[in-house]
Design a protein around this nucleic acid. Structure first.
Lengths: 182, 182
DNA sequence: GAATACATGTAAAATGTTACATGATTTT
DNA sequence: AAAATCATGTAACATTTTACATGTATTC
């Protein structure tokens, strides 16, 4: 899957592995992230499969850059993935829910403290989406002039914002339930 | 992490690997799932670490069962994990958002078809949580008499229900946005 | 003087998925 | 007669994380 994140970005313009990591960190990281080392390895695999090519750009006083460019085969592969509809939902993993599921014998006060702390973390995330992520989307849109793209980028941002807001509401309900009935 | 899911269940009673898989499939699978083979391997590791013990129960006309029991060390490990608060959020992966992010050049009609199909899938999931999962929680509560546990199990169920409902709302907004502005 | 940014990579370990292998009993 | 259930496991592969390894230039 990281494969398609990388091809997706390379479909706009050539990038180095380092730049791809930075770009992902301020854009797709909210719903698709990767470590630097994994990006380098995946790019190597993509090149082995002729989906991208690379060339080294020498630099002075800095390490050389390896710049990757998508190939025609890469564009086809990306296109084919994009047009393939999702027909079944993938299961999620939520550590928080796993913990909560087994917490019936935990101390009530401790449990409440943990959940309140988490509530604040998620509340911060709501702000993060409303402010930082919002700004990034607008900057991208202004600098690239990609209107349609910006609308979809903002749709993914709204998903994040609404997910976090929903989580805060759910935590509030859950905290209230534990306060009352435990 | 699967480690703690298994210890969590074994903290109630002994289970075989097969039974753990079945139990997870109707309970935690919504937020934590695993393949049968991974469960067997993880149990083996837990036994090597003395967090569980196992003994073989011979059966006639059926394969023998290997029944796992949690040890005192296992209970301590679980307890220590349960009391450790989550201080930083883990990043999520959402294939749908990744696809959407790069879909600006896709055909409008095709994109709308894909999103509407997905909307229906998530709508079904809302029902799944409201009916099937709800019933499982109530059955567990009734048969085990674990009142506190059932309240927390239902809290995780509500998270799923609310997540799916939020996703349906977001898809409706996104579909409307694409219909109007693309 | 210390930290961050720039820039690349390898290696080991952990985690998770898919495929293979077996075989009786029960249900459809 | 075919499919599902019960029950265990191994092996290969893919994915992801963590740690290791290097070195200059710029910013605080």
């Amino acid at each position: 899957m990281l494969k398609y994140a990388l091809l997706g970005f390379l479909n706009y313009q050539p990038y180095t592995g380092y730049e791809l990591k930075q770009t992902m960190d301020v854009s797709t990281a909210n719903f698709w992230h990767a470590k630097q080392s994994q990006i380098y390895m995946t790019l190597k695999k993509l090149e082995a499969g002729n989906l991208v090519t690379s060339e080294i750009e020498p630099q002075e006083g800095r390490p050389n850059r390896r710049v990757y460019t998508i190939t025609q085969a890469g564009r086809s592969d990306l296109q084919s993935w994009l047009s393939k509809p999702i027909t079944q939902l993938e299961p999620h993993k939520e550590t928080l829910l796993l913990q909560l599921f087994f917490s019936a014998r935990q101390d009530k006060a401790t449990l409440l403290t943990q959940l309140r702390l988490l509530r604040d973390l998620h509340q911060q995330q709501v702000k993060h989406y409303k402010i930082e992520t919002k700004a990034v989307v607008q900057d991208f849109a202004a600098s690239t002039g990609l209107g349609k793209d910006a609308l979809l980028w903002d749709a993914t941002r709204r998903f994040g914002e609404q997910f976090e807001a929903m989580t805060v509401r759910w935590l509030d309900e859950t905290i209230a339930m534990i306060e009352e009935t435990f």
